[in-house]
């Protein structure tokens, strides 16, 4: 299995719901071991997040003006891509950072982690953050403690961020299965991998912006334009 997320950049409104749901689930989750906050009511609060959303503008420098300009605001959520060729795993000296053979999920074993940060250096996507309280590296677990949990109703065996996302821009599934939702969506929409030039083979896919639908107004435009002073013809329409 090759589990991961497909994230739709065409519908993500940048609401941070997934990030907070993740924080909430993992904040007290035993598996992830927590996502602490530092000085939350203080002057400079900070904390560990496994999923962060950043906002960008794609600026079409004036080729097409007016309403049809290609300028867009794009919101990009990023969490661990569960890379197939994950240097964060390779570089870890202790084996604390590991990739599961069965489903490809990349995890950190807190009992082995020495908190050297080295894996975070090896990650191009900023997916790893050190928990300064426990002294161990934290990252997205793909909600491994939800997706297999038999105590949860079947429909809820999904990552917390996927369940929360109000625009359903996040999809979870097995990229090895060509019929899975994520595989089908990726194929249909021509998904992309972020920064794939580094060769990490990220599993998470991003569904690109769709082309705007067009409405052909030719017929309506061809209707004669009435002079304002014409008398209007009444139709016989019963109440």
């Amino acid at each position: 299995m090759k589990l991961g997320l497909a994230i739709d950049l065409d519908t993500c409104v940048g609401c941070h719901a997934c990030a907070v749901a993740c924080k909430e689930w993992n904040g007290a989750s035993l598996m992830a071991g927590g996502a602490p906050d530092y000085d939350p009511q203080g002057a400079a609060p900070s904390g560990v997040w496994f999923n962060r959303i950043r906002h960008y503008e794609v600026v079409d420098d004036g080729t097409r003006g007016g309403c049809e300009s290609a300028t867009r605001t794009v919101n990009v959520p990023m969490s661990c891509m569960h890379c197939e060729d994950a240097d964060c795993v390779k570089v870890c000296p202790t084996g604390a950072s590991y990739k599961r053979a069965s489903d490809g999920i990349v995890l950190v074993d807190p009992d082995r982690c020495i908190g050297c940060n080295y894996c975070s250096w090896a990650c191009p996507y900023g997916a790893r953050e050190l928990d300064e309280v426990a002294g161990v590296m934290r990252k997205c677990t793909l909600c491994v403690d939800r997706i297999y949990d038999q105590n949860l109703p079947e429909a809820e065996r999904e990552p917390a961020c996927v369940l929360a996302c109000p625009t359903h821009a996040r999809h979870f599934g097995d990229f090895d299965d060509p019929n899975s939702r994520v595989s089908r969506l990726s194929a249909e929409r021509g998904s992309v991998s972020l920064m794939d030039s580094l060769g990490y083979k990220p599993v998470n896919q991003y569904l690109p912006l769709r082309a705007a639908p067009r409405v052909d107004v030719a017929a309506a435009a061809a209707k004669p334009v009435r002079d304002r002073l014409r008398t209007w013809v009444n139709k016989l329409i019963p109440i």
Partner: peptide
């Protein structure tokens, strides 16, 4: 600079792939 030096003895496990481990 290790946040969790008590596990430092573990850092020989990844000789096969990690330069840090090899260094150790």
């Amino acid at each position: 600079h290790l946040a969790n030096p008590k596990h430092a003895w573990q850092s020989f496990r990844r000789f096969g792939s990690s330069w840090l481990s090899r260094e150790g």
